[in-house]
Design a protein around this nucleic acid. Sequence first.
DNA 1: AGCTTGATTGCCT
DNA 2: GGCAATCAAGCTA
Length: 183
Amino acid sequence: MTLGPAFFDRPAPEVAPELIGATLLVNGVGGVLVEVEAYDQADPASHSFRGPTPRNAAMFGPPGHAYVYKIYGMHWCLNFVCQPGSAVLIRALEPQHGLDLMHQRRGVVAERQLCSGPGKLCQALGISIAQNGLPLDASPFSLSAADTRPDIAAGPRIGITKGVDTPWRFVVAGSLFLSKPLR
DNA sequence: AGCTTGATTGCCT
DNA sequence: GGCAATCAAGCTA
């Protein structure tokens, strides 16, 4: 079943764990989501904390669309917009479709390193600012709900300096495709 | 107009 | 484990 606007029109911390196990494809390339993080407007770690800006405009747009931004001057990060000002960062997935293309784009041989981090995932799937604001239930995206819900674990988010104790990182317990093991 | 810093990655020791 | 790469958004003035 395709995940559309109704699924995303809820608080990000509620949506995030339900995305674990879903299948994300971009132009047919992708796999099963194994690691995500939630951000909302009351959260000092969120781009939306200080209100709308040109960069984060998509976070205040319709739910179920993509929010893509560049970090550290070189990497792209993909988010799914939930209720206004909140979104879910897609951090890692288990590669299942389009492995050849992913290897080509990433230049690595180890399958576990293809999409084990937000920047890596965007490189492997060909995500850039060109996809910012696009709906997730239409081409080039394809997002389908999990058939069976995997065991989910939660912990603190990665790489932030504010809101460090908020346990809004959700992962497939014991997955070998995470950016880092859960603490 | 100038300064700081980041929801990261990969290479070096 | 430490740190350079690389640059624009966002903040201070």
